[in-house]
Design a protein around this nucleic acid. Structure first.
Lengths: 108, 108
DNA sequence: TTGACATGCAACTATATGGTTGCCTATATG
DNA sequence: CATATAGGCAACCATATAGTTGCATGTCAA
């Protein structure tokens, strides 16, 4: 519920950014140019997405010469998975059964 | 990576909607009026958020008389946690160490 | 039936967002 | 040095989104 989480959720909301994360997951440490290849977006658009991902701390970058290499940072994702999503996993079956019960039992 | 996931991620992107899910998590089966209490939003705004959550299948609703009761549906959240977030949990430490290695070893 | 209560629907506004184009800066390399 | 390459910056545009107000519909209870 921290404010940080908001950046992470918003960063994850865009399909293009999720694809970028997928690409980095497949091959970590790619440059901006590498990440642009095959996407029908301008380089600048990709750069903006990467900036947002960096802002959410989902990606860290370092410059090597004139290149900027990008690395995935799994910590925030792990964070929301643990602190926010985790609480829905445990009561999953309970909620389903209580829902079913409600749907069946409340009408009469 | 299904198209459904997009709805879920987008639904989760908004803090107000996450708060609504939190409220439903705290007390399942609330009506629209119940969910409005204490929020500085109009009822209509809340209704829209709930519609989006329903569209993403994160919430299901049923009418009882003139009330509409809302229930959380943990399945989609569980889905993205398993299928999308899970793949980042496992390589977490590996990625961190490779990042550290890169940050230290590439400069000279 | 009549009025109060819970929700639905529609139009409208303002801002956020994703994307573009154009130009500038910095690092290699001939 | 000159030129290509990789990326950064800023203005701009179109649409999506969150929120509002106003009114309509449906349901309960006296």
């Amino acid at each position: 519920m921290k404010a940080d989480d908001d950046d992470v959720f918003r960063a994850l909301a865009d399909p293009s950014r999720r694809r970028l994360l997928d690409r980095l997951h497949a091959a970590d440490g790619q440059s901006l140019g590498d990440l642009c290849a095959g996407l029908d977006m301008t380089r600048q658009a990709v750069a903006k997405h990467l900036a947002i991902l960096e802002g959410a701390n989902l990606v860290v970058s370092m410059r090597r010469g004139r290149e900027k290499l990008h690395y995935i940072n799994p910590v925030p994702i792990n964070g929301i998975a643990e602190r926010w999503i985790g609480k829905f996993e445990q009561p999953r079956l309970a909620a389903l059964s209580s829902l079913k019960k409600s749907l069946e039992g409340e009408k009469p």
